[in-house]
Design a protein around this nucleic acid. Structure first.
Lengths: 222, 222
DNA sequence: TCAATAATTCTTGTATACAATAATTATATT
DNA sequence: AATATAATTATTGTATACAAGAATTATTGA
C-alpha cells in the first residue's frame, strides 16, 4: 500500500510512545528503526517529522530525534487545558446527546461496577477510556473530540499509574456516577464543572496531583 | 544550517497557507516546490509531512498534497472550540496578569481607536492580532496560548474578510473595550463570556456568521 | 464520432549515495 | 596521568536513482 509505510511507522511509534513503551527522553536512532521495520531511512525520517509536529518527538538538529520529555510546567499547563476541554465536551454532550447515546453512556458507566469491586485495574482503565470517549463523541463536535483525544494521548504516559490504587478506583467510579447523572439529565453546567475537576485532580489537592506524577519521566533541566 | 531547510520550507508554506496566499484545495506539486525553493524533493516531502500533521495540508496517497479545504461542518466545529479556548484564555488572564500586562493590554486596545476612525483595516487587523495574543500570553499557560494561536492560524484563511466592514470594525472595537475592562478589573467570568462570543459571531446571529464565511474556499463535497 | 482500451508520460514513494557535522577514539603534550 | 588536540567513526541532512501507480494521450473498433 502506498505512502502507508511512513504513516504506518508513525502510527506504530505513536502508539508505543503514548503507551509509555518508549520512555520519554529515549533517542530514536534512524538506522535502528530502519532495521527494526525493514524499510529505508526515507520513510523513517518522514514518520519522525510527523511525530515532531505532533509534539511527541523532539528533533534536535544534527543530533537526532528524541521522545519528548515534558517539563513539570508543561504538564501542569497541559492538564489545565485538558480539564477545560473535558469540561466543554461534557457541557456540549449534556446538551446534544440523543437518548440512545445517553443510555449507552449509562451502560458504559454501570459495567465498571464489577471491575471496581474486583479491583480489575486494566479492565477499569480500558472501560474508563471508553466512557470518556463516549462523552467526547457526545459533544457532536468532531474537532473538539479529536483534539481532546489527542491531548489525552499525549498525557497518557504521565497518568498510567494514577488509577493503580483501590481508593482512586472507587473515587473515579463515584465521580463517573455524578458525571453520568449530570449529562443524562442535561445539566450542562454541572457536567462541565464535574469533568473539569475530574481529569486533573480527582477532587484531591494540587499536591496530590503533583505527587501522582512519575517524576522520573519528567524533564528537570529547566 | 542543518535540518533547517525542511523546517524553513514548512514555515514558509505554513505562512502562505495561513495568510490565504495559497488557496485551500490547491495541489502542492513536489517538483514545482523543488524548483521554487532550489532544494531536492527530500526536504520538500518532509515539510509536506509536517504540514499534514498540522492539518494544514492533506496528503492523498499516490496523488499528492493539497492545501486542506475545510467543510462547513468542520469550520463550525473549529470556531466553537476557538470560542472556548479564547474564553479560557480570558478567564485565566483576568486572574493571572500582573499589573504591567494589564496596562499593556489597555494600551494595545487604545491604540486601535484612531485605526477605527481612519478605517485602517490592515492596521486594525494587525493590532487585533496583537491584542488577542496579549490575552493568550496573559493566561500564563504557554500550552494554552500555543494551542489557541495555532487554531487561530488555521482559521485565519476563513476570517480574513470579516473585519473589512466599517460597522464590524466599530463593533469589534466596542467589544474589545468591554473585554479589556473585564480582564483588567479581574472579572474572569465576564472576560470568559465576552471572549467566547467575540470570536465567532461578533454578537451577531449564527446566520450572520455563516454569511461571513468565504464559501468558495469551503469544501462542498460532503 | 465516440467509447473503450492500450501506450506513454508524469508523479509519488522508497532506496541508496554522498556531503557535512557531531561523537568518539586515539595521540600528543605537559 | 590528565588534559587538549587530532584522527577516525558514526549519524544526520540532502540529492539522486529507481520502481510502482496514477493521469494523460494515442489508438483501435464500432
Amino acid at each position: 500500500m502506498a505512502n502507508m509505510s511512513s504513516n504506518d511507522l508513525r502510527r506504530q511509534l505513536e502508539h508505543e510512545i503514548v503507551l509509555g513503551e518508549i520512555v520519554p527522553g529515549t533517542r530514536l536512532d534512524e538506522v535502528a528503526l530502519t532495521e527494526r521495520f525493514g524499510v529505508s531511512r526515507t520513510p523513517v525520517r518522514e514518520s519522525l517529522q510527523q511525530l515532531s509536529m505532533m509534539q511527541l518527538v523532539e528533533i534536535r538538529p544534527r543530533r537526532g530525534a528524541f521522545v519528548k520529555k515534558m517539563s513539570l510546567r508543561e504538564l501542569v499547563d497541559m492538564f489545565e487545558v485538558m480539564a477545560e476541554l473535558e469540561g466543554t465536551c461534557g457541557k456540549l454532550a449534556a446538551d446534544r446527546m440523543p437518548d440512545d447515546e445517553r443510555d449507552k453512556l449509562k451502560e458504559l458507566h454501570l459495567i465498571t461496577e464489577p471491575l471496581v469491586k474486583n479491583k480489575d485495574y486494566d479492565g477499569y482503565y480500558r472501560a474508563n477510556v471508553a466512557f470518556h470517549e463516549a462523552i467526547y463523541k457526545g459533544s457532536h463536535n468532531e474537532f473538539l473530540s479529536d483534539q481532546t483525544k489527542s491531548l489525552r494521548n499525549r498525557l497518557t504516559p504521565y497518568r498510567r499509574l494514577q488509577l493503580r490504587q483501590s481508593n482512586r478506583l472507587n473515587n473515579s467510579f463515584q465521580e463517573h456516577a455524578e458525571i453520568t447523572e449530570a449529562i443524562t439529565s442535561g445539566n450542562k453546567e454541572l457536567a462541565e464543572q464535574l469533568l473539569g475537576t475530574h481529569v486533573t485532580v480527582q477532587r484531591g489537592s494540587f499536591n496530590d496531583f503533583l505527587a501522582s506524577l512519575p517524576m522520573d519521566l519528567i524533564d528537570q533541566s529547566a
